[in-house]
Amino acid sequence: MAHRILIVDDEAMITKSLQKLLKKQGYDVTIVTNGKEALEKIKNEDFDLFILDIRMPEMDGIETLQAARKIVSDSKKKPIPEIVITGYADEEKYKAAVELKVRSYIYKPFDTQEFLNTIQKVLNDVSQ
């Protein structure tokens, strides 16, 4: 069964590109462009991986992350591993993400192979 990945990024260019990339790898990709939509999806569907951009308007990555964890824990679902995409200037947010013990971080613009490797690693770790 293909892994299901939820990607949240306010930049359409990025979500589309990532969807294409990951689809080609055989993943099942769902894309949303803001935190609210992401929470909706998490509530109603199951995912194996949650990739989110840390810097977003309205609800930023950290907020979305925390809210998502709550929904998951509330609904007693399996916790979803998170990968946070961050830019080099997001010092503060990165620190916050670290404290939240996010599974992995990746800086954009990222090397595609590295990205795929990270995803693979996280999914592997979880299954163990």
Binding site: E11, M13, I14, S17, L18, K20, L21, Y88, K108, F110
Partner: peptide, 11 residues
């Protein structure tokens, strides 16, 4: 610039 660059690199 990061965002468009990411899109370029990825594609």
């Amino acid at each position: 610039i990061n965002n468009p660059l990411t899109a370029i690199l990825t594609n």
